[in-house]
Amino acid sequence: MKVALVTDLHANRDAVEAVMAHAASQGAQRYVFLGDFVGYGAEPGWVVDFVSDHVRHGAVAVMGNHDSAVVQGPTQTMVPQAREVVAWTRAQLDDDQLDFLARLPMSVTEGNRLYVHANAFAPTQWAYVVSRLEAIRSLLATECLFTFCGHVHEPRLFHLPDSGEAGELSPAPGSPVPLSAGHRWLIIPGATGQPRDGNPAACYAIFETEGPAVTFHRVAYDHEAAAAKIRAAGLPERLADRLVDGE
């Protein structure tokens, strides 16, 4: 089975539509949405409805920190810009959309796969996996062989062998990476709605259960149009700029 892994959609309809079309062209059979459906972008209502419709049809979705902030209030660590967008986003959503976000699970386990937004060792604290140290903590916090998370906004791939040191791979877009037996794997697809690695193309990945293997993808989309929507909504200019420069 080919499972499309989509995370950090961030209310960016243009990016989501491009990624979903690409995933369909790659033969994706199932979809997993790893959180942060709102925040930063101009179309939170559309994205929430889109994800909730897919969940009704069998997709998996977990809660992200921005989703949590919209329904529960921002955390103390959120920067002022993010807090501003949280308040704006909440005003854009109706009761059904807010209820959907509120009912999202923190994580979902399916067989040997764990789906979570930030990490496996403290999901509700929203710590980032930015180095091998956090990757090891996350991998050791679950018995699952494969952990899939977002939050970082950049594609990352870590592995922990049964014996030996943890490693990090730099996957090339479009090239399948075999996921060797005897390792635990932590896969971060990168952000669909707001990449931050200098490349504005949307990120996602496809996990193949047979093999197994993972392929990271970059999908060009009209990020200028998405940025224009942010400006038209009166949201901070920097959020529009981030879509254009990918930073």
Rank of each mutant, 00 (worst) to 15 (best):
M78G: 00
P80H: 09
V70Q: 05
Q81G: 15
W88R: 07
V79G: 14
M78L: 14
L114T: 08
D95T: 11
A82Q: 11
M106W: 15
D95K: 13
N65S: 04
D99I: 00
G111W: 07
A87E: 15
S68R: 14
P74Y: 03
V85P: 01
A87S: 13
R90L: 04
L104V: 02
A82P: 01
R83S: 00
T77E: 12
V116S: 01
T77F: 12
A61W: 12
P105G: 04
V70H: 08
V108N: 12
L93A: 03
Q76G: 11
R90E: 05
D99W: 02
Q81L: 14
T89E: 04
H117W: 06
D99K: 10
P74K: 08
L114F: 03
D95H: 12
V108S: 11
L98W: 04
V62H: 05
L93Y: 12
D99L: 11
V116Q: 03
L93C: 05
Y115W: 06
P105Q: 03
N65F: 01
Q72G: 09
M78R: 01
P74W: 02
N112V: 10
V79I: 13
Q72A: 13
R113C: 07
W88I: 05
A91G: 14
N65P: 02
L104M: 11
A102I: 00
D96Q: 13
L114K: 03
Q81E: 15
D96V: 13
A102K: 11
V79S: 14
T89V: 08
S107W: 06
A102V: 00
F100Q: 02
G73N: 09
R113E: 04
L93K: 07
V86H: 07
V71Y: 10
L93P: 05
A91C: 10
V71E: 08
D94F: 09
H66E: 02
Q97D: 08
R83F: 10
Q72N: 15
Y115Q: 06
V71D: 08
N112F: 01
R83G: 00
A69D: 05
L101D: 01
A91F: 09
T109Y: 10
R113M: 07
E84G: 13
G64D: 04
L101R: 01
M63L: 11
V85Y: 14
F100L: 05
D67V: 04
A61K: 09
S107L: 08
V108K: 14
V71G: 08
R83K: 15
H66W: 10
E110Y: 09
A87H: 15
N65C: 02
M78F: 15
L101Y: 02
Q72H: 14
T75H: 14
V79E: 13
Y115N: 02
M106G: 08
T77A: 03
M106R: 11
R90N: 09
Q92T: 09
A102N: 11
S68V: 05
L98N: 09
Y115F: 14
G73M: 07
V79A: 15
V108Q: 13
E84Q: 14
A91W: 12
Q76M: 13
S107I: 05
Q81T: 15
R83I: 01
A61S: 10
F100K: 02
V86P: 00
M78Y: 13
L101W: 02
W88V: 06
H117V: 03
D95C: 11
A69G: 02
G73V: 01
A82M: 12
Q92R: 12
Q97S: 03
S107K: 09
Q97A: 04
A87W: 15
V71R: 07
Q81K: 14
